[in-house]
């Protein structure tokens, strides 16, 4: 099948980007979106042009590396599907696909379809941990966890941190991501000791990054390839509200968002 790919090309953050249309004639319907770009890139390299930069790693929909807007949908129009798992049979012969990077101030563009998602890493670093005693490995089932709680925690834990929620959100808010991280640890007994500090720390770091605020619109959960429910945002808000009331004098600190790479930064 034959497709026209209208792709955002931008050399680096400082140069102006633009859309460039490429026609790809030998698309196999069983190819994934990324394989389709591989085919295009081979062609571009043979012609001596710059290949399209895109991020990828596992190509099985579990690493969270890939992701860009396909025709206005984060990861494309299929629900619960990452860009690497999106097969081209979902499009019609002769279709035009518009590929754009995630657009958010908190995700500065690196090149073409690649954005810098380290803001997520800083949110994780702010509170995405639990305390574990050293010594012998504890008995696996020593702490009883109700089935319903385990399921809800697991639903939240399926987040792969791809950034589709931020990309799809009209406000470019990271609430679904942060909510998923706060929920998946905070719901389980193992995560209870840090529940308050986790909510305060992660929310503080999220607010420090240039993300927008949540207005409960719900496009995040709709575009999430792991179908993280909107409930995680309610969990985050409750944990944050309770933690704010219970807070005594623990100092909550945040890391200044860094948008440059260490190789070209001054300090």
């Amino acid at each position: 099948m034959k497709l026209t790919l209208k792709i955002w090309r931008q050399k680096n953050r400082d140069e102006k980007g633009k859309f460039v249309s490429y026609s790809v004639n030998n698309v196999n319907p069983e190819m994934s979106m990324l394989e389709c770009l591989d085919v295009l890139n081979e062609d571009l390299i043979q012609r001596g042009e710059e290949p399209v930069a895109f991020e990828h790693d596992c190509r099985e929909g579990i690493c969270g590396s890939c992701g860009f807007m396909i025709n206005g949908h984060a990861h494309g129009p299929q629900t619960a599907t990452t860009a690497c798992q999106l097969t081209m049979r979902h499009f019609k012969d002769g279709d035009q696909l518009t590929l754009e990077p995630w657009r958010a101030a908190a995700f500065p563009l690196v090149k073409d379809l690649v954005v810098d998602r380290r803001a997520f890493d800083r949110i994780i670093a702010a509170g995405g941990y639990i305390s574990v005693s050293t010594g012998n490995a504890p008995d696996g089932n020593a702490i009883p966890v109700p089935k319903g709680i385990a399921d809800r925690a697991m639903d939240a834990a399926t987040c792969i941190g791809c950034g589709a929620c931020v990309a799809a959100c009209p406000n470019a808010s990271a609430s679904l991501f942060t909510g998923a991280k706060i929920s998946h640890l905070g719901l389980l007994p193992q995560g209870k000791p840090e529940q308050d500090r986790r909510a305060l720390n992660m929310v503080a770091q999220m607010s420090e990054e240039p993300f927008g605020g949540c207005t409960n619109i719900g496009q995040c959960t709709e575009s999430c390839p792991k179908e993280i429910p909107l409930e995680v945002i309610a969990n985050m808000n409750r944990d944050y509200r309770v933690a704010t009331l219970r807070k005594r004098d623990d100092l909550i600190q945040v890391i200044t968002p860094v948008t440059t790479w260490s190789s070209d930064s001054k300090s």
């Binding site: 380290r118 890493d121 609430s175 929310v203 808000n237 945040v254 200044t256 860094v258």
Partner: peptide, 26 residues
């Protein structure tokens, strides 16, 4: 190119009203 932050400087966190969650609770 590193995957970590180039510089890490910590400072006082934004409070309840400064956070988007706090504003939404209000």
């Amino acid at each position: 190119m590193s995957t970590g932050a180039a510089t890490i400087s910590k400072h006082q966190a934004p409070g309840f009203w400064k956070s988007t969650n706090g504003k939404k609770i209000v």
